[in-house]
């Protein structure tokens, strides 16, 4: 089963280092968002209560087995069952329930404060289409990456194009499903500049495991600058090589599925490639973003992410593939 097939590469450790000690980049325990913070506190408190209960049960169990006759007789009463099995849980659970509901209500209040959703995320098999609405109401289409301004509540409109997906960026907030026929809204607020990772949490068939994304939190000015750049048309090919790459792109019919704003490529089946070179990853956080990965993806995408919609393009003559890959990589 493991014969000479190319191994599926993930984001390599190089990028991991760039992310700054990558452990915890997708961990609910290293929260950087408001909601994730609240939940982590709830987790620690509820977890401690549960641990204490477990210890209590164990102590009683050991005493029941090993205690002196007097202790055992004291344990072996209906009263113990009523107090340990009924009164104690009612008290403890009442507290936990109220606390959890208050956390829930606090989150709801936050989302009311955030206002209309300014980002739409569409789940697809197996990538994310991300549409930002800038301050002038223009739509800016991007993919597989969510950029957020620091410290602002942002509402995300979550929908799906095919099956059920679930949007989960553990450092920001809990997950919320994307369900056909429904629109869900998730409010997030990131309080740390940096990069974290998220992943589809609802099994969506085939390459469910390879449907991840990065969340990049930027200071407000940088975010606005980035959004303006993202809204602009693609950089025209500068060098001769890039021009040839662009020609190969057009000739090979890539525009049937992909858009590069500012060119005649207007396809909407695959991700928008206008600024693909500036993203953190390729193929929904499956490959690092470099020319080599572009080339591998174009020719070998069915091995890297089986069942994805893109056909394999293996017909390029010597050099053609490289110019195409370099051109795509230049779309910063």
């Amino acid at each position: 089963m493991s014969h000479s097939r190319p191994t599926t590469p993930m984001v390599p450790s190089l990028l991991g280092l760039a992310l700054g000690g990558c452990e915890g980049v997708q961990s609910a325990l290293s929260a950087s968002g408001d909601e994730a913070h609240d939940i982590r506190l709830l987790l620690w408190i509820a977890g401690a209560v549960c641990a204490a209960t477990l210890v209590l049960v164990l102590v009683f169990g050991i005493l029941a087995f090993n205690g002196s006759a007097r202790v055992r007789a004291w344990i072996a009463r209906d009263q113990l069952i009523v107090s340990g099995g009924l009164v104690l849980p009612v008290v403890v659970l009442s507290g936990l329930l109220a606390y959890a509901l208050l956390v829930l209500q606090a989150g709801a209040a936050r989302s009311a404060f955030a206002g209309e959703p300014s980002v739409t995320i569409i789940g697809k098999r197996w990538w994310w289409k991300v549409i930002y609405r800038d301050s002038e109401g223009r739509e800016v289409v991007s993919a597989n990456e969510l950029r957020l301004p620091l410290g602002q509540p942002i509402s995300l409109r979550l929908i799906t194009d095919d099956v059920i997906h679930s949007f989960w960026a553990p450092k920001l907030a809990g997950k919320l499903d994307m369900i056909p026929g429904r629109t869900n809204v998730l409010t997030v607020q990131s309080n740390e500049v940096g990069v974290s990772r998220g992943q589809c949490a609802e099994y969506c068939g085939g390459a469910h495991a390879l449907m991840a994304f990065y969340v990049v939190t930027l200071p407000e000015e940088e975010y606005q600058a980035w959004l303006a750049r993202e809204a602009s048309k693609a950089l025209p090919p500068a060098t001769e090589a890039e021009k040839r790459g662009h020609a190969v792109f057009v000739e090979s019919g890539c525009g049937a599925c992909h858009t590069i704003r500012g060119t005649e490529a207007r396809g909407t089946i695959g991700p928008d490639l206008t600024h693909v070179g500036s993203r953190m990853s390729l193929a929904a956080a499956t490959l690092p973003n470099d020319a080599n990965s572009f080339a591998r993806w174009i020719t070998d995408n069915q091995h890297i992410k089986p069942e994805n919609l893109m056909p394999p393009f293996r017909h390029f003559k010597a050099g053609e593939l490289d110019t195409l890959a370099n051109y795509l990589d230049s779309l910063k």
């Binding site: 194009d161 095919d162 057009v250 000739e251 090979s252 019919g253 525009g255 049937a256 599925c257 396809g267 909407t268 089946i269 919609l309 017909h315």
Partner: peptide, 21 residues
Amino acid sequence: GIRESGIPPCLACHSGRASKQ
């Protein structure tokens, strides 16, 4: 094409303007 089914427009490649192949 049909976006939902992942079917690109035929003429994007087969109009004669794309690759001669």
